[in-house]
Design a protein around this nucleic acid. Structure first.
Lengths: 336, 336
DNA sequence: ACATGTCTTGAATTCGAATGCAAAGGCTTG
DNA sequence: CAAGCCTTTGCATTCGAATTCAAGACATGT
């Protein structure tokens, strides 16, 4: 009974006058038990408050039904939002989510991911976190499916879902040129991120195609405070840009606040600002930020699908999904 | 070896020429093994990529080293922020976090928490989620420690950490009266939440003590969109308030945007706005919101401490921690 | 040299549920 | 009515590591 909290299948077996195997079968959907016995067992189980121990079940079946979710930090609301939908989608598929926050751990990340693997998770979703080469190797050897979310990884055996950041960067360049801007600048994110790299590459290519070049560039590292500083540096120059593409919305808010409240500039009359992600705050009237929308729901669905397919067919090759974003025009960019 | 992914202690034992027991002892800190043998085993383990299976270990020791973290949703940034720090603090203590998002599941919440218990988690932290009576009962019977985060629960056997929302509400009333406001209104959060109830109770008590009464009241349910609607309803009246206390910062931003951009009111000249939580966005220049700071770090530390103490001493009584908040004066309230 | 104690190590058991195999029972069919 | 088949159930084993108990190795004291 509840000597130490919960009943075991043996307790139920004894109470129902059957064997432990039968109890087990009653709780395994595919196994067959006569309805009369099943009912007796279910009654006894309810009586004792018995539920199968998932750890024991995982041991024997080799399927823990746990997926690990690794996230760097939640400063940028894009990530908690994605996290929420990822967790819900996985829950709907009967998986439970072991979370690991990788914030500020640097090298220790590898170690803790090893710890996650010790739980025999069936798969791994990494959002906003890169993998070291050794770890990539370790994961490949453990033969555990991995999906990178909003990042691309070069290793051929790692799946990934992202939006087309190159196309998005290019669309932004085209939009700024089309609306008649001539001194166009860029505030970069953390240079180690593929999103940063791809958005900038597309943006520069788009400028080049339009016969323009970058007016100035600063690095904001995807953090609010760094972005504020980057904006101040950028606008300390004698001539300032008439448009700034900020590598994500979260930094763009910091930049807009500096421009308006520290420097007294009007947006978009004095300077246009454009972001990336389309987090909910971008639609708020205080910012009303033109941006490129990342299709979070579709990315989440894709990530979950890739992961589950890989779990079901471990020998299938890794796959990559790249979704289209969409330029959302709001009021932070001057019209032509 | 890695026939199916990972080596077992038997594989290592064979490779090192020792028994499985010895391998196990090498990986149990307290057990004693001669240094020579230990080294041989460690080498073999490294060679084979062996790490102890935590599920198997949990089975025999009865300690899964897993804590469940239940969160309703991440719309209000207070929660992802708390979640991040909770997860980090628990990781630091050697626990891993099984996450469950309770968003929109309503009655199904109970069921899924049952599922969490099936993983034999050692404890449960609930943030922003209430418990049904049956569930509270089930948890008490399972003898598993529970800590409510930013909520209080009446059940005597459930620990909780919160800030003093009554005192905070009162401080806000006093501040608004001191600064000379006379038509003071309130936009409530979801009425089922203890934070909502306590903040309003303290606020009304504070007004009463100052000889004032509430000018008007609407309900925003802690959601951005509902708060916008609540603000529009409130300001559709012929005479509008000169100060509004909004039950949390997240709703206050929505209210401020409506007041400024839809209704053309100036803050604080035409109307003062005050929030609750002090989320990072409140300090941004666009909002510059006066608010009551909830001491997130201290609340997180308290929650983790309560939980771990309860895990270590299951017979100790449940405890409650109530921390002081602090009124943070910014620019959204008119000075006297 | 012998008794005693300490330290290592291995054999056997355990945690809780799933499952292959075999036995027992029920039913069909010639 | 017997032979054969299918269904239901129990027995015994398994997953992987921790732990109890006992035995062996070695040192110490008298």
């Amino acid at each position: 009974m509840q000597r130490d909290g919960s009943a075991t299948s043996y307790d139920v077996a004894r109470a129902a006058g059957v064997s432990q195997s039968t109890v087990s079968r009653v709780f395994s959907p595919k196994a067959k038990v006569s309805e009369a016995v099943a009912q007796r067992v279910r009654d006894a189980a309810a009586q004792l408050g018995y539920r199968p121990n998932r750890l024991a079940r995982a041991m024997i079946t080799g399927r823990s039904r746990i997926v690990a979710l690794v996230v760097a930090h939640f400063e940028n609301p894009f990530y908690p939002d994605s996290f929420e939908h990822l967790a819900l989608a996985l829950q709907k598929e009967g998986y439970h989510v072991l979370t690991f926050m990788a914030a500020d751990l640097g090298a220790r990340t590898d170690e803790v991911i090893q710890e996650l693997l010790d739980y025999r998770v069936e798969g791994l979703i990494m959002a906003s976190v890169g993998l070291s080469n050794e770890l990539t190797q370790a994961i490949a050897e453990a033969e555990i499916p991995v999906v990178m979310f909003n990042r691309v990884q070069d290793h051929q055996d790692i799946s990934g879902v992202s939006s087309d950041n190159v196309a998005g960067g290019r669309a932004i360049a085209e939009h700024l040129l089309r609306t008649g801007h001539s001194r166009i600048s860029y505030i970069a994110g953390w240079e180690g991120a593929s999103t940063q790299r791809d958005r900038e590459a597309g943006f520069l290519a788009g400028l080049a195609d339009g016969g323009a070049t970058l007016f100035s560039r600063e690095v904001g590292d995807f953090h609010h405070d760094s972005a504020e500083k980057a904006a101040r540096r950028m606008f300390a120059a004698p001539v300032h840009p008439d448009a700034v593409f900020v590598a994500n919305d979260h930094m763009a808010f910091a930049v807009m606040d500096v421009l308006r409240h520290d420097l007294g500039l009007r947006i978009p009359e004095d300077v246009s600002v454009i972001g990336y992600d389309d987090v909910p705050t971008s639609a708020w009237k205080s910012y009303d930020l033109t941006t490129v929308r990342q299709p979070v729901r579709a990315m989440v669905d894709g990530a979950v699908r890739l992961l589950l397919e890989r779990i079901a067919h471990p020998d299938a090759p890794a796959a990559r999904i790249v979704l289209e974003g969409a330029l959302i025009e709001r009021g932070s960019v001057r019209r032509a």
